[in-house]
């Protein structure tokens, strides 16, 4: 499968700064693409557009030729956000959070080190690293074909970071999921990605 961005342009309000200007890219299944650029460069905005959270002012995002907004139900492009605390409903128990996109196989829970005891807790009773594991498990639903990771381990300690990435890489390889990683850490991208886009090749 192929995730394609064609000539994307975007700015938040009329007259404000142009965040994306005729930006194009493609991501193939099984490919791991790394993005490194300073903040304010619109990486998060790009992720939101690719996953269908925001509409570009012009241009389009296609999954095998189908516009991403036209897809009803579970979206094959899943975005994992930087702040897991904001990505879960604070009034839900973790079991409900985890299964919002459908049942999650034991394999994924084990791989991410999600302890069964956590399922009965509320988000406020878990740390950021633990919550992020749930957010990742939730985004790995059966119908996920592309995964966008926007600084997903920035707030975590190095060991958790390495734990999470080792599992993710294995899972993605097995299921031929295309991955886009945004991170400020060069060494991290070197470890993970098959291809890197630097900021000068950007717009």
């Amino acid at each position: 499968m192929k995730l394609e961005a064609k000539e994307l342009s975007f700015r938040y309000q009329k007259g404000s700064r142009q965040i994306l200007n005729h930006f194009s890219m493609t991501l193939e299944s099984g490919e791991r693409l790394g993005f490194a650029a300073p903040s304010g460069f619109g990486k998060t905005t790009l992720c939101k557009i690719l996953a269908g959270y925001e509409k570009p002012d012009s241009g389009q995002v296609l999954i095998d030729g189908v516009p991403v907004q036209d897809i009803k139900g579970y979206c094959p492009v899943q975005l994992i956000w930087q702040h897991p605390e904001l990505s879960v409903n604070p009034r839900w128990r973790m079991r409900q959070v985890l299964e919002e996109g459908g049942p999650v196989p034991e394999r994924i829970m084990d791989g991410l080190g999600i302890e069964r005891d956590w399922l009965n807790r509320y988000p406020s009773e878990l740390s950021g690293g633990e919550l992020q594991r749930f957010c990742i498990a939730r985004a790995l639903g059966e119908k996920t074909r592309f995964l966008l990771a926007d600084e997903i381990t920035t707030m975590l300690d190095l060991i958790t970071q390495s734990q999470i990435w080792h599992f993710l890489l294995e899972e993605i390889e097995k299921r031929e999921i295309g991955l886009l990683v945004v991170s400020h850490s060069g060494p991290l991208l070197d470890q993970i990605c098959t291809r890197k886009v630097e900021m000068d090749q950007w717009t």
Binding site: G129, S162, W165
Partner: peptide
């Protein structure tokens, strides 16, 4: 980039 099992 070596992980360590378990959680804090």
């Amino acid at each position: 980039f070596q992980p360590l099992a378990g959680t804090q």
